[in-house]
């Protein structure tokens, strides 16, 4: 009877010792590792804070992916590139962008029609990156270099003076086209 107890107790003590001998942060690593994962996922997102993924911003979406609540293909401004990067990080299969979203092929910024603007400050309050300048009853304008094209300012405008315009392609930012072969190996 006593021998039987030893058989159970000794391995238990050994396990406890092994656990104690681990470095401290290794023991508590579930939270640490998750936080690090959220940070790495967030770094892969485009930081437009547009909320098109149905979360409040990029960080909350990263948290949702990390905890398995959200899929990896819900970020339209990031598109295929972001999905690919996340799938590589998580070791998952590449996916197509969720069909409810529209693929954004060209970068856009917003433009305020200054003749129509009444200076209501509603768009300024909506902009997540402080890219709109102006004050109450003064004309507003967009700092196009800081604008991420998230479109969050368009809905609040009471006079519909904000429109989405494509960013001009300069030679410096031009990208070579990918060759499109007529014949492909079917896999």
């Amino acid at each position: 009877m006593e021998q039987g107890a030893f058989i159970i107790v000794i391995p238990m003590i050994a396990c406890l010792l092994a656990w104690l001998m681990m470095p401290f942060d290794f023991r508590t690593n579930t939270t640490l590792r998750k936080r690090a994962l959220v940070e790495r996922l967030n770094a892969l997102l485009p930081q437009t804070q547009c909320g098109k993924c149905s979360y409040d911003g990029c960080q909350p979406y990263a948290e949702a992916i990390a905890s398995g609540k959200a899929d990896i293909n819900n970020c339209p401004p990031g598109g295929d590139e972001t999905i690919r990067n996340i799938s590589t990080l998580l070791g998952r299969d590449m996916k197509k962008l969720e069909s409810e979203h529209e693929q954004q092929l060209q970068q856009h910024v917003v433009l305020i029609d200054e003749q129509i603007c009444i200076g209501c400050v509603k768009c300024i309050n909506a902009c997540p990156v402080d890219a709109i300048i102006g004050a109450a009853k003064q004309m507003h304008t967009v700092i196009s270099k800081a604008c991420t094209g998230c479109e969050l300012c368009i809905a609040p405008c009471p006079v519909d003076c904000i429109s989405l315009v494509p960013v001009n392609v300069e030679i410096k930012k031009w990208v070579w086209t990918k060759p499109q072969p007529e014949f492909e190996v079917s896999t």
Binding site: Q47, W176, K178, P179
Partner: peptide
């Protein structure tokens, strides 16, 4: 042409990353 595409894609990705850093700092 594939390599030129690849190189310009890397440069574009870097620009996008810089843009995201800028946006997240402002946010």
């Amino acid at each position: 042409q594939y390599y030129r595409y690849g190189k310009s894609q890397i440069a574009a990705e870097e620009r996008r990353r810089d843009g995201a850093d800028h946006a997240s700092a402002r946010f």
